[in-house]
Design a protein around this nucleic acid. Structure first.
Length: 573
RNA sequence: CGGGGUGUGGCGCAGUCUGGUUAGCGUGCUUGCUUUGGGAGCAAGAUGUCGGAGGUUCGAAUCCUCUCACCCCGACCA
């Protein structure tokens, strides 16, 4: 492709709307433009990246035995009502009405549709297993779309669905997908980690996420890793073993209310009472599906809303607004405690709280805390369980290693759905014994538009993008320094024709721009190999080569370019 | 949804507090000449519903009301 014949609108300045470096580079390098919040136009370079990544995904999915189909984007609301996700995922769904006032949904994912398809088609175990996938645009009415292609309202996803007759067969299907995912990301030049995750709104038995580890602001997810074994889980899911028992008293003491003037925060209270943060147990009021619940965790711990949601069996959980807190506790926000609340509500207590004697809690009175409080003696828990984020430095749940945290971007996920959808949508088959059984299902996603942005977040420098070769818009960019000069132009054209006819994907910068402009644009768009045609090297019968990933420069013989370029391509990521 | 912020040529911004020529600057764009190995120089030129609607005023980018869009933050304070 010639630069003059395509459209690469590079920007010199950073558009003010972009926060993340990867988002800025996508805009500056002329890959995307925004239409509305979370809705983007893919320009020619992005289109090429999408195609290259999609081809890798297709290739590996096909190899794994999955079958490509295309399902509709437009869904009748009824099928979503049938699975009950019209309610549970309601706010995320893009809804619309047709001219007959029929409710429709723009598909955010396709469990319902693929199950609809197969419940009418598959009647026997003999037709199983089957794996169907598609690469297609999805719609989600995100609360807050942000960061360019990272969290859009419209985006492209590869989604696959497996149907199996029994657990052994499902385990094979799941493993095949996991293997395919590792192969896909490896081919795309991305080293991903598979981590355990919560099943969330998707439901089902278990789930994993494929994370690209980054150390930039783009890493939205926190992942806990064991330093000894291969345990890895995202923060919502990660558990730990309580081996570092906190210091505490041996005997219970009598409770006492203590005035704590102007001490509302954990720090203020612990300073005032001269105690360590773990001895102050905070009581947080949440609304679980609209009903207030209280949760107690150590002052030095973070409550994990996903775990709490699961403990109370709720669909939606949100921190209670101040008015509700005041109504429930009977005092201003900041002094909630388990004893003497104005209303009786469920009380979920974190495991760790049971290890401490004589802790401090809010007294449900303004600027008063109660000291020497003990579980069971002074109040009863509705439920005791793990409701905190696994703390860094605590012990791995599987071995004696220590947990540490990293940030990552989720580029793929796999869900063991079990029979959640096949049961709710009544999709059954006849087993070997003649009985009707619901299908065992799995669903598997890869963000086709998010992954390239994640790759940029991982691979860039101050000059621009450093694409891994297999998802780069081009493999090679030919840069004649002075296209108006016949020798440069001829050498460039010859090189372009030679490489192109040998199947090497080239971009020829045939603009009559100055060298500096071309160098900067080349570094910005991030094509892995730059071939620079200038007087210095040309006079020696050489072409200058710059490896965009390392910045390394060398000279190739002008008569041996295809071989040299192919060799270099074989060496880079 | 709550909180904060921003809307001014393609892009980045100033001007708004304290209303007053013809709304500026940088960059980009067009044309010409020169230049040509890391975002050139000189010259000439084009490009604005100042997000929108309404209002106050002799006069509004600027003040008031409403509205729309976009960006950021969101629960250790319980």
């Amino acid at each position: 492709m010639r630069w003059s014949k395509t459209y690469i609108p590079t920007l010199r300045e950073v558009p003010s709307e972009a926060e993340l470096i990867s988002h800025q580079l996508l805009l500056r390098a002329g890959f995307i433009r925004k239409l509305a919040a979370g809705v983007y136009i893919y320009l020619p370079l992005m289109q090429r990246v999408i195609k290259k990544f999609s081809d890798i995904v297709r290739d590996e999915m096909d190899k794994s035995g999955a079958l490509e189909i295309t399902m509709p984007v437009l869904h009748p609301a009824e099928i979503w009502q049938e699975s009950n996700r019209y309610e549970t995922a309601g706010k995320e769904l893009m809804k619309l009405k047709d001219r007959h006032q029929h409710d429709l949904v723009l598909g955010p994912t396709h469990e319902e549709i693929v199950t609809f398809l197969l419940r009418g088609e598959l009647r026997s175990y003999k037709q199983l297993p089957i794996n169907l996938y598609q690469i297609q645009v999805k719609f989600r009415d995100e609360i807050r779309p942000r960061f360019g292609l990272m969290r859009g309202r419209e985006f492209i996803m590869k989604d696959a669905y497996t149907f199996d007759a029994d657990d052994e067969s499902f385990a094979i299907a799941y493993k095949k997908m996991v293997d395919a995912y590792f192969a896909i990301f490896k081919k795309a030049g991305l080293d991903t980690k598979k981590v355990e995750s919560d099943t969330g709104a998707m439901g089902g038995k278990a789930a994993h996420e494929f994370m690209l580890i980054v150390d930039t602001a783009g890493g939205e997810e926190v992942i806990l890793f064991c330093d000894k074994c291969d345990y890895a889980a995202n923060v919502e899911k990660a558990t730990f073993r309580e081996t570092n028992l906190p210091e505490t008293d041996s005997e219970m003491k009598a409770t006492e209310d203590v005035a704590t003037p102007n001490a509302g925060t954990i720090e203020e209270v612990t300073d005032f009472l001269k105690i360590k943060a773990h001895r102050l147990v905070k009581t947080l009021i949440y609304l679980a599906d609209g009903k207030p619940v209280a949760a107690m965790v150590r002052g030095d711990r973070e409550l994990n809303m996903t775990k709490l949601t699961n403990q109370v069996g709720a669909v939606e959980l949100e921190l209670a607004p101040a008015e509700v807190v005041e109504e429930v506790t009977g005092c201003p926000v900041g002094y909630a405690g388990p004893i003497g609340m104005a209303q009786e509500i469920p009380l979920i207590v974190d495991n760790e709280v049971t290890r401490i004697k004589n802790f401090v809690v809010g007294a449900n009175k303004n600027e008063v805390h109660t000291i020497n409080v003990n579980l069971d003696r002074d109040f009863k828990a509705t439920k005791i369980g793990d409701i905190i984020n696994a703390p860094v430095g605590e012990q791995c749940p599987n071995c004696d290693g220590i947990l540490h945290a990293k940030k990552g971007i989720e580029v793929g996920n796999t869900f063991m759905l079990g029979t959640k959808y096949s049961e709710s949508l009544n999709a059954t088959f006849t087993d070997t014994d003649g009985n009707e059984k619901p299908f065992l299902m799995g669903s598997y996603g890869i963000g086709i538009t998010r992954t390239p942005q994640a790759a940029i977040e991982r691979f860039h420098d101050e000059k621009g993008i450093q694409w891994p070769k297999n998802i780069a818009p081009f493999l090679v960019e030919i840069i004649p320094l002075n296209y108006a000069k016949d020798e440069h132009k001829e050498a460039a054209e010859r090189l372009y024709n030679e490489l192109t006819s040998n199947g090497i994907d080239c971009l020829l910068d045939d603009r009559t721009e100055r060298a500096g402009v071309k160098f900067n644009d080349a570094d910005l768009i991030g094509v892995p190999i730059q071939l620079i045609i200038g007087d210095k090297s040309l006079q020696q019968g050489k072409i200058e080569v710059k490896n965009r990933q390392t910045g390394e420069k060398s000279l190739f013989d002008i008569n041996n370019m295809t071989e040299e370029v192919t060799k270099l391509l074989g060496q880079i990521n």
